[in-house]
Simulated assay, not measured.
Amino acid sequence: MYREHPAPRELADVVDAFWTRSVDAPQDGRSYRVLPDGCIDVIVHLVGSPRVEVVGAMTRALVVPDGPSEIVAVRFRPGAARVCLAGPADAITDARVPAGELGLPAAPLLDVLATLPDRAARVRHLASVLTQHRRHPLDPLVERAARALAATRPPSVAELADSLGVARQSLARRVRQAVGVGPKELARVLRLQRAVQALRAAPRDHAALACELGYHDQAHFIHEMQALGGLTPGAYARALATAQDV
């Protein structure tokens, strides 16, 4: 149903992964939950209502109705989508925008992808289109900030600004325009992703996990996961145990 594909060498610096998702039959009213990850995706829907859309960085979970679908998509690394898209990332936060409005050739892309025989060929073509539409260089300051904020014990915004040699306001503006959220929000989202990966890997004591991830305590962990992901850690673990798509 869902599969990730590695980025080619020419896009490895900006792409986290290409991904495909295929559902043949109706899913009886089921839905699946997409959690914030600090990334921007370009998603090509090939069935139903064919379209190419850009999904901005998210500050809260998105619950998507399931159903027949054939998708090929790319997930950019935090702060990297601007190399291929027109406009600042914070203009599309928590939004879905037609890709043509952000400078991508949506109609030609759909026309070609619809003729290709398999997912691997579609991923290759989407990668080639993105390679041809690299507009801007990566912002090295945003790259360094994103790496620092992904650490298990990330620095405060003030500490990060000092280490990068910029004013706190300048750092916040550049991260927000490149990523879609400011550095403090990005740190929260990246910590949520580490929590989710830990919960997926094996059953965990939530109090111990909260300490390991740098939350103040278990209550803080519960509050953050519910605020960003829409589920408590316990509810998320139960959903995993019953094979629900979360």
Rank of each mutant, 00 (worst) to 15 (best):
P8D: 13
R9N: 07
R9K: 07
D13N: 10
V15D: 04
V15F: 09
V15R: 11
D16S: 13
F18V: 03
A25P: 00
A25C: 03
A25I: 02
P26T: 02
D28P: 01
R30Q: 15
R30V: 00
R33V: 10
L35I: 02
D37F: 05
G38Q: 11
C39I: 02
I40A: 09
D41I: 06
I43D: 05
V44C: 15
V47D: 01
V47P: 00
V47C: 01
V47T: 15
P50F: 10
L62T: 02
V63D: 13
V64S: 05
V64L: 11
P65K: 06
D66K: 01
P68Y: 00
P68Q: 00
S69M: 10
A73C: 06
R75V: 00
R77V: 02
P78G: 13
A81C: 09
R82H: 13
V83H: 01
C84M: 09
L85I: 08
G87Y: 11
P88W: 07
P88C: 05
T93L: 09
T93H: 09
D94I: 06
D94P: 11
A95H: 11
P98S: 11
A99K: 07
A99R: 07
E101F: 13
L102P: 07
L104N: 07
P105A: 03
P108G: 04
L110N: 00
L113S: 06
A114Q: 13
T115V: 03
A121C: 08
A121D: 10
V129D: 04
L130N: 08
Q132M: 09
R134W: 03
R135I: 07
P137H: 03
P137A: 14
L138H: 01
A146G: 08
R147K: 12
L149I: 05
L149F: 11
L149P: 10
R153F: 11
P154T: 09
P154G: 13
P155Q: 10
S156H: 05
E159R: 11
L160S: 11
L164D: 14
L164V: 05
G165K: 06
V166N: 06
V166Y: 06
R168W: 01
S170Y: 05
L171C: 09
R173H: 08
R176L: 14
R176V: 02
Q177W: 09
V179S: 11
V181R: 07
G182S: 10
K184D: 15
E185V: 13
E185D: 13
L186I: 05
R191K: 14
L192H: 04
L192A: 03
V196P: 01
Q197T: 12
A198L: 09
L199Y: 10
R200F: 05
A201Y: 01
A202G: 00
D205S: 13
L209V: 06
A210Q: 07
H216Q: 14
H220D: 15
E224L: 09
Q226Y: 03
Q226E: 12
Q226W: 01
A227S: 14
A227H: 12
L228G: 10
G229F: 02
G230H: 07
G230E: 11
L231Q: 15
T232W: 02
G234P: 00
A235W: 01
Y236I: 05
A239G: 14
A239L: 12
T242M: 12
A243K: 10
